[in-house]
């Protein structure tokens, strides 16, 4: 692909304001309680593909939402600490991640075509328009 190639992902309307930021992509799932050091925003579970990487200010693009109901609170805590991602994109998310994102005011989208985990690379620049269910991808990786 050429460096300036653009791609648009489409799906159902998500939650949140339009936002743009760099992508951090993994085919692993994500739990805000068990995968993350909430004091730094760095992935802390050794077995995670993104171990050691910071999601602060990034659009986290992952396969599934993992973990229990603590996520409902945890994203709000991240925003207050300044260790939150800019937005969340899932292949398919569970309700608790959405409940947490709405509580925290973090944009969240899912069920997009083509598959975001395959179509987006870490380092790509993303423009999310949750109300329209669209993400523009600008290749930078």
């Amino acid at each position: 692909m050429s460096a300036d190639e653009r791609l648009v992902l489409r799906g159902p309307a998500g939650y949140g304001e339009a936002i743009e930021a760099e992508a951090l992509v993994s085919s692993d799932g994500f739990s805000a309680r068990y995968d993350l050091d909430h004091t730094t925003g760095v992935i802390s579970r050794e077995a995670h593909e993104l171990y050691g990487q910071s999601l602060v200010g990034k659009v986290l693009v992952v396969s599934t939402a993992k973990g229990g109901t603590a996520t409902g609170w945890r994203l709000f805590d991240l925003v207050e600490r300044g260790t939150a991602p800019a937005a969340l994109v899932f292949r398919a998310t569970n309700p608790v991640m959405v409940q947490g994102a709405v509580m925290a005011g973090i944009a969240i989208m899912h069920r997009l075509v083509p598959d975001p985990v395959e179509a987006i690379a870490s380092g790509d620049w993303l423009r999310l328009r949750p109300a329209d269910g669209e993400i523009d991808v600008e290749r930078r990786a």
Binding site: T69, G72, W73, P95
Partner: peptide
């Protein structure tokens, strides 16, 4: 559903 803290 799973209702996280704020949702419950």
């Amino acid at each position: 559903n799973f209702e996280g803290g704020p949702a419950a």
